[in-house]
């Protein structure tokens, strides 16, 4: 019974993470559009000053939030060091690409609207994956704690 409830809890949490990614994607589509031309148009209308004003708090907040999330990986023993490094490098790397692409679009390099789209979707997916790994570990901890308590 407990195992089934835990599985249900994990499923609900995954639904929550997917919903968060969908909301992020929907917000991006509502603001900038879904095809590369719309994205180029959206960012070309913005001034460099406006972009930097958005970029500065994002860089600070997201780096702190990522560090806050990612440092938990250091305490998870069920995934390999390679996988942890993949999560860390890909999240920070995708964030840099995602945030710097608009600057390059305003300089007239339209190719980066496609790069922005791919980086944004990948960032949301990898972050969701990290959250699921962390939550799965908590549930495993719950099971091991109680099975050792029963012994």
């Amino acid at each position: 019974m407990h195992h089934q409830l835990l599985r249900f809890l994990a499923l609900l949490f995954i639904a929550l993470v997917i919903l968060q990614s969908i909301l992020g994607g929907a917000l991006f589509i509502v603001l900038a559009g879904w095809n590369p031309d719309d994205i180029s148009h959206y960012y070309r209308e913005k001034s460099l000053h406006g972009l930097i004003e958005t970029l500065a708090p994002h860089t600070l907040f997201v780096s702190v939030a990522l560090m806050g999330s990612l440092h938990f990986l250091g305490f998870i023993s069920t995934i390999t060091e390679k996988k942890k490094q993949f999560f860390i490098h890909s999240l920070f790397g995708l964030f840099v690409i995602d945030q710097s692409a608009p600057l390059l679009i305003t300089l007239g390099i339209d190719f980066f609207s496609m790069v922005k789209l791919v980086a944004f979707i990948s960032f949301e997916c990898v972050l969701g994956w990290v959250w699921i790994v962390m939550f799965r570990e908590s549930l495993r901890d719950f099971l091991s704690h109680h099975s050792s308590g029963q012994r």
Partner: peptide
């Protein structure tokens, strides 16, 4: 919703 949910999931 997106910003709220980000913080609340954490």
């Amino acid at each position: 919703l997106h910003t709220d949910l980000f913080g609340l999931i954490l």
